[in-house]
């Protein structure tokens, strides 16, 4: 698989390590009322679709940036790659 890195162009997926479901960006606040439930679901119940999946990849052997990659889990086709930083800012999270 080749990942279209937004800054570096096409890079071999072997340069990256994989974390999983991009929803991991959206870490819940620790002081909310039902925190235990929310954290359980955040950490353990991730998306696992057959089809398009948004996921976090870390460019460990490259510029060490985190990417959000949209990829089809049935065909391994990569549809889009964004800097996770940009995604987090769009979601109103601090950088």
């Amino acid at each position: 698989m080749l990942i279209p890195h937004p800054l570096l162009g096409l890079r071999d997926a072997a340069e990256f390590t994989y974390l999983g479901d991009a929803a991991l960006i959206e870490r819940p606040e620790g002081d909310i009322e039902n925190a235990q439930d929310v954290f359980h679901n955040y950490l353990f119940l991730r998306d696992n679709p057959a089809g398009e999946h948004r996921e976090l990849w870390f460019h460990e052997q490259g510029d060490r940036s985190w990417l959000v990659v949209t990829r089809n889990t049935v065909t391994h086709e990569i549809i889009k790659a964004e800097l996770a930083r940009d995604v987090a800012i769009q979601k109103g999270r601090s950088t």
């Binding site: 071999d12 997926a13 994989y18 696992n48 057959a50 049935v74």
Partner: peptide, 13 residues
């Protein structure tokens, strides 16, 4: 292989 997949086939690395 290390990433979510339903492809029943892996990659070369």
């Amino acid at each position: 292989d290390g990433y979510n997949s339903y492809a029943s086939r892996g990659n070369l690395p």
